[in-house]
Every structure is written in structure tokens, then in C-alpha cells.
Design a protein around this nucleic acid. Structure first.
Lengths: 224, 224
DNA sequence: GTCTATATAGCGATAGAC
DNA sequence: GTCTATCGCTATATAGAC
């Protein structure tokens, strides 16, 4: 950005975010030390304090940097959906999935980088992280829920919420647990190409979303 | 069990496992210290070394204690399935889901205890933990895959593996991210009763598994 | 088998020179 | 904006008394 500097290192701030993302993914938030992060970034330990205030601030910045553009793109794709089309459900589903898959594919370390971090993020014990993630996702979730409500009027608000939760779970698991999948499948599934996963996800999830309401439960479609 | 001891504390080993499970769930593996664990267990710090060798050994024991009975019960229920019945798929699905839901429901802290831990386990950065989980799950996964292969012959081995992965993901996410669900749904979904979740899971996942094979390829490839 | 006491190491954070 | 040096704290692990 700034041209007053010789480019001996691109940008302290950005280097720190890259290194932090990499080491948080590899070791977890608590286990990745600022010493290791600053060393990998090639900057001084004290730079964390200067640029982010604390480790907590660095964590927050690592998530915000990826989640904000991700959810912006989702909203953009959602707005481009034609909710009256025959494949409206698939369109909306893809508006949710594609930006995530694309982000993982384009991230520095692919599925072993921010993807793994994302896979852990919803069950992250760190309260501060959960707050950030919640804030970043709430609006997106609400918008997609509104679209699904229109497309799946046979489901109660409760069941619809659960189903969206399952969608998010399958996606998070897919993005975050590629390594375990490869191991457990004995090599049948390779995770090098996330686009394969996307195709499989889409057919599985759209069928699940279209399923009749769970038996023995009130099938109210009270309010649209 | 043993009657040679006065019951001033039930069992140091068991107390340690309970406390560790609770604190690992709440703070994560790395962030839960042995000091906090031994204090909550009401035993001495050095007892960890004596009974489990190290923190790593304690971690391993915490997972094994729950996962072994869980997967034993799954295998038992799977063997009781009638693969020629009309609802064979639902039977097999329930053989996978029910023991997990039951375990969570009966665990000391329910969904906030081992459940949260389980939700993180597949993307756990700790290599040792992943090894334990893998060893504990491999046989179970293979048996269920064999059953699904019979019931869903229209799917390639690869797509079938992915679908089983999605099933596991939805389940893990459901079990592990109840708190985030409640927050994101604005209170529409309460997670007090895991049996509700089970009914919703079953209808969603069985429809997903039955879906036709993924059409062509797709969607998010380069050049966007 | 359980305890106290401690060795050894690494942590996050910051003061202050440049 | 970046650095060195260090403070104060907590961690895991273990030696040795009982």
C-alpha cells in the first residue's frame, strides 16, 4: 500500500494475519503462540500489540478478514437468485455454498488453512471468537432463512431452522474435516478438488431440504 | 466397584476423567490446564501423572471412555437391522444416530459436555487426538459403509463416502453447536431436548441419502 | 496411591530506546 | 513503526516425603 517504504517486507499487518491464520489452523487458537506467529511472519513480537492490541485482537482480525467478504458475496449471490424459478432452491443453496468453497479454494493453504479454522469455529470454546462469528453471520443467516421460508412453506419455522443448521453442519464438516475424511475413507475420497465436494453437497442437501416434514410433528405453515 | 476403600471420593481416576471432560468441553484441550482439572476433580495435581502419564494420556482416556461404548452400541444396533425391510435405510441411519444422541442426553452435562467435545473432534488440530478418534471410528465407519453400499447401489463409492461424511457432519454439528444454533435462530430452536433434533435429523438425512447421484460437474470452477 | 515442593520452560504483555 | 529486554505469570512434569 504505502509507497514510502522499501518493500523489504510487504506489510507487517498482512504478514501477521497470514501467519496467524496458518498457525491457528494448524495448532488451534490457544496453542499457537504469538512468538511462533511473529517469527513465521518475520516481524517483531511487539508488532502484535501495536497493530492488534492483543492476541485476542489478532484472532478477531483473522476471522473478520475472511468472513466479511465471504458473507458479502453470499448476500450478493442470494439477491441474484430468482425465487420463482424451478431450481430456486438450488440457486439459494449455491448462493450459500459456492462463496465458501471458492474462498477455501483460493485461500493461501486451501483446505488446510482457513478451512480447518472455519470447521472449528461454530464450536469454538473461546467466547470472544464466538461473538465475532455470531456478529458476522447473523445477518446472512437471517436473509437465507427468509428465502428458505418462501421456498419451503411446508416446514415449521423450527424444523426449517434445524434444516438450515444441518446444511451449515455438512458444509462446515466438509470444509473443516477433509483430512479425516481422506483417512476414514481409505483414500477413496481425495479432497484436492473442492469442486467435487460442492457437487455432492448440492445434490445431498437440496434433497434433504425438500424432504417432507418429520413424521409425528406439527406441520404448521402458519405464517408467511 | 471396589469395596476395600472407604468412599471419601469415589475414584480418583474417574473423577479426573469427569473433570477433564467438563473442562476440555468448556475451554478446549489446550486451554484447560491440569491445575484446573485436578482442582475440579478434588485430587492432587500429580495424580494425572500417576494415572495417565501425561496430559496427552488423559486426553486420550477422555475420548476412549465415551467413544468405545458409543461405537459398540452402534455396531449392535446395526446388526439388528433388517436390510431387506422397506425402511432399512432409516433403520441403519438410526443405528448411527441414536447411540450418539442417547450418549449426549445421558452424559453428565448433556450437550454442553462431551457433545461439544465431539463436535470439535474431527477437526481437532491435536494430532494425537485425531489418531485416537480415527482408531475408534474406523471399524464402525467401514461397517456402516458396507450397509449403505447395499441399500444405495445407485451411488459410486466416492459419492457414497461423501454422503456418509455429510451425515456425520450434520450430526457432529448438531451435537456440538447447539449453543450457536440457539443464538443464530434467535431462540426459535431450543436444544434442551435432543430427541427433537433426532427426528429432524432423520427425515433430512434419509432424504439426502436417497437423492439421485449428483448430475454433472459444475459450478464454481475457475474463470469466475 | 497421594501429597508438597519445585524444576524448567514458555506464555502474553509492555516500557522505553531508536 | 519497529525494536530489545524484561516483568509477572502460568504451564507441564517430576522428585521425593509420607
Amino acid at each position: 500500500m504505502s509507497e514510502t517504504e522499501t518493500k523489504e517486507h510487504v506489510d507487517t499487518r498482512e504478514s501477521l494475519l497470514d501467519a496467524a491464520e496458518s498457525l491457528f489452523s494448524e495448532h488451534g487458537l490457544a496453542a499457537a503462540s504469538l512468538r511462533a506467529i511473529t517469527q513465521q511472519a518475520g516481524v517483531n513480537l511487539a508488532a502484535v500489540s501495536y497493530h492488534f492490541g492483543s492476541k485476542e485482537g489478532l484472532v478477531r482480525a483473522v476471522f473478520s478478514r475472511r468472513l466479511k467478504p465471504l458473507n458479502d458475496e453470499r448476500k450478493e449471490m442470494l439477491e441474484a437468485c430468482d425465487l420463482t424459478a424451478a431450481d430456486a432452491l438450488e440457486q439459494v443453496l449455491r448462493a450459500f455454498l459456492v462463496p465458501a468453497v471458492r474462498m477455501i479454494r483460493d485461500a493461501p493453504e486451501g483446505v488446510h488453512g482457513f478451512g480447518r479454522l472455519m470447521g472449528r469455529v461454530f464450536s469454538e470454546p473461546n467466547e470472544e471468537v464466538r461473538r465475532v462469528v455470531f456478529a458476522e453471520f447473523k445477518e446472512t443467516v437471517d436473509r437465507f432463512m427468509a428465502a428458505f421460508r418462501v421456498l419451503l412453506p411446508h416446514l415449521s419455522p423450527e424444523e426449517l431452522t434445524w434444516r438450515f443448521h444441518f446444511v451449515a453442519g455438512s458444509m462446515a464438516h466438509t470444509i473443516g474435516c477433509g483430512q479425516m475424511l481422506e483417512e476414514l475413507s481409505g483414500g477413496v475420497c481425495r479432497f484436492a478438488n473442492v469442486d467435487d465436494a460442492l457437487a455432492y453437497l448440492e445434490s445431498f442437501l437440496s434433497a434433504g431440504l425438500r424432504a417432507p416434514a418429520a413424521a409425528g410433528r406439527p406441520q404448521c405453515s402458519q405464517g408467511d
